[in-house]
Amino acid sequence: MSFIEKNLENITGAIQNSVFSETIAKKDGFLQRLDPRTKIVCFILFLLAVNLSVNLYFIISVYIFLLIFAGISKISLKFFITRVWLFLPFFTGIIALPAIFNFFTPGKPLLTLINNPQQHFFIAVTQNGLLTALFLLTRVATSVSLGILLVLTTPWIRLLKALDRLHAPQILIIMTMMTYRYIFVLLETVNSMFLARKSRMVGRFTQWENRHLVSSALGTLFGKTQVLSEEIYQAMLSRGYRNKIYILSDFSLTILDFWSIVATTAIIFGLFLIWRTQ
């Protein structure tokens, strides 16, 4: 596959991805009904608990709870599980794999693969190694699943508004909002640029010409972005922009939100107490 097609595929993938997230966020499920602020608080509590935990069972139990949350939020479990576990083995899996052997993590051998005492050659899967690899895998998988759950059940604009209400730096929130919006405008531009090039191509390009193609596309984009930002600024001025932005939101906490935070804390402490002795 040529790199132009690769880029086109990347671009359409990003657009598809975000459109798909929005359709799930519009469903009428449990997490969709919660106030985004509540979701962010619970998300951070869970994320911290998972990353601070020194107990494998604790992390796995949290993951099971996430599956339940996904289920009652009308997210297809098959999608929720495969989205994480399909790509995870290729990245974290490859990184975690060597750690199971004795030359990286010494410990009690569970499965001896090669044992040649004459040449001091000994390869085995160790108990500590297996635990280390499992720790990394489950921790990463649970953290990533938490993020997916938050983003899938919250439209992006509400998520950012909620962050603003939670006193994240406002200038950063506003820039993130605007950036997210214009990523898609620029994606459209790049898409047409590559498509236009592809539709005019008959022969093959050399590597060098391909690199020039990418860099000239980028150079042109820098110019276009500059012009576009100027136009947007003019449009903002003509609509009365005076260096101050107000973010409107219509959030209201319900009794459900109260109980969700209580439940999150209860789950975390409950699991902690259950697995404390392990």
């Binding site: 214009y182 576009l228 930002s229 600024y233 260096n243």
Partner: peptide, 12 residues
Amino acid sequence: SKTIPLISLFSA
């Protein structure tokens, strides 16, 4: 006052 539109666009 151009900060927000310019940085947002270039972040994109």
